[in-house]
C-alpha cells in the first residue's frame, strides 16, 4: 500500500514537472496576458453586460433589457451615423489601398534618393490625427483656405468644404487616405518579394509594364492586399480622430462617425449602456465585414504554398 502511494506520488510529481515544462512558455507571456485580461477582456465582457442595461455613469443601473439595441435600430441619429461610417469606410479603404500600392510601386523602382521619398511619404502616418493636423486641415479647407484660393486662380469657386454637409465627409476621408504610410511600407515589402525572373519571363513574352503589373505583381501580392484590406477596413470603421478634431461630427451630423457617437454618448451624455450597445453593434458589423473578406479570399487571393488555390 505504502509502495503504491509512493508510486502515485512520484507519478504526480512527474506529471506536474511535465506540466510546468510544457507550459513554461506561458510565464514569458504572462505580463501581456495579465494586461490583456485587465485592459481588453474585462472591459470587453463588461461592455457586453452594460449594453443590456441603462447604465449611467452617475446614476448606475436601474433596468435590464434589449432596449439599447432597439434604440440603435430605431434612432435616426444612430442609423445616420452608421450610414456615414459605411460611406467613410467604402470611400477611404479602396482609395487608400490603391494610393498606397501606387506609391509603393513607384518607390520600388531604383531611383535616386528613394530612401528620402520613402521616409517623406511615411511622415503623414506618424503625424496622425493630431491637433496640429486639424489646424492644417482647417487652413487648407476653410472657405477662404488654400484649396479654394488655388481653385479661385483657375476661375473655380470652391465649395464650403467644412460647412457643407455634402462635402465635409470627403475632408475627413482625405485625412485618412493621406496617412497611407504604413500600408505603403507593407506593400513595398511585398513588392520586393516578387521574384524578378517572373518579370523577365513576362517581358520575354512581350508583356509591357502595365501587363506585368496586373498579371504578375498583383496576383503575387494578393495575400498582402488582403491583409491591408482587412486591417484598413477595421481601422476605417473605428475611425475617431479625424471627425473629432476637425469637424466634431458636424455640419448637421454629416461626419458623425459611429465611434464619435459612441464617445459622445459615453462621455458627454454619460449613457454607458447605449454607448456599449452601439459599440457591440459596431463589433458585429466589423466581424461580418471581416468574415465576408475572408470568405471572398478563395476567389481572388493567391497563396503560393497552396498550389495556387
Amino acid at each position: 500500500m505504502a509502495k503504491s502511494d509512493a508510486a502515485a506520488g512520484e507519478k504526480q510529481k512527474v506529471t506536474l514537472k511535465k506540466f510546468f515544462k510544457n507550459n513554461f512558455g506561458f510565464l514569458f507571456i504572462l505580463p501581456w496576458l495579465i494586461g490583456f485580461c485587465i485592459f481588453k477582456l474585462y472591459p470587453f465582457a463588461s461592455s457586453l453586460y452594460y449594453s443590456f442595461t441603462d447604465y449611467n455613469l452617475f446614476k448606475g443601473v436601474s433596468k435590464f433589457g434589449l432596449f439599447n439595441y432597439e434604440s440603435v435600430f430605431h434612432t435616426a441619429k444612430i442609423m445616420k451615423s452608421f450610414s456615414v461610417t459605411f460611406r467613410y469606410a467604402f470611400i477611404t479603404v479602396p482609395l487608400k489601398l490603391v494610393f498606397s500600392l501606387f506609391i509603393a510601386y513607384i518607390l520600388n523602382f531604383k531611383i535616386r534618393g528613394v530612401n528620402f521619398f520613402r521616409t517623406a511619404y511615411y511622415i503623414p502616418s506618424i503625424l496622425g490625427g493630431s491637433v496640429a493636423i486639424a489646424v492644417l486641415w482647417k487652413a487648407v479647407f476653410r472657405d477662404e483656405g488654400l484649396l479654394n484660393t488655388a481653385l479661385g486662380f483657375i476661375g473655380i469657386q470652391g465649395p464650403s468644404w467644412l460647412s457643407d454637409p455634402h462635402y465635409a465627409l470627403y475632408v475627413i476621408c482625405l485625412l485618412r487616405v493621406w496617412q497611407f504610410g504604413s500600408a505603403m511600407i507593407i506593400f513595398l515589402a511585398a513588392l520586393k518579394g516578387v521574384p524578378m525572373d517572373l518579370y523577365e519571363a513576362a517581358a520575354l513574352d512581350g508583356a509591357g509594364k502595365w501587363r506585368q503589373f496586373f498579371s504578375v505583381t498583383v496576383p503575387l501580392i494578393t495575400p498582402v492586399i488582403f491583409y491591408n484590406l482587412v486591417t484598413q477596413l477595421v481601422q476605417a470603421f473605428q475611425e475617431f480622430n479625424g471627425a473629432y478634431i476637425i469637424t466634431q461630427g458636424g455640419p448637421r451630423n454629416s461626419t458623425t462617425l459611429i465611434s464619435l457617437l459612441i464617445y459622445n454618448s459615453a462621455f458627454k451624455s454619460y449613457n454607458m449602456g447605449a454607448a456599449s450597445a452601439m459599440a457591440w453593434v459596431l463589433f458585429v458589423i466589423l466581424m461580418a465585414m471581416t468574415g465576408i473578406a475572408f470568405a471572398s479570399q478563395k476567389h481572388w487571393v493567391y497563396y503560393s504554398d497552396e498550389d495556387g488555390k
Binding site: 485592459f39 481588453k40 472591459p43 470587453f44 490625427g129 486591417t231 477595421v234 481601422q235 473605428q238 475611425e239 475617431f240 480622430n241 473629432y244 465611434s259 464617445y263 459599440a279 463589433f283 466589423l286 466581424m287 471581416t290
Partner: peptide, 13 residues
C-alpha cells in the same frame, strides 16, 4: 486583432 484594435481605437479616441 479586431478586439485589440478596438482597444487601440478607444485609446486613440
Amino acid at each position: 486583432m479586431t478586439t485589440g484594435m478596438a482597444g487601440c481605437g478607444n485609446a486613440a479616441a
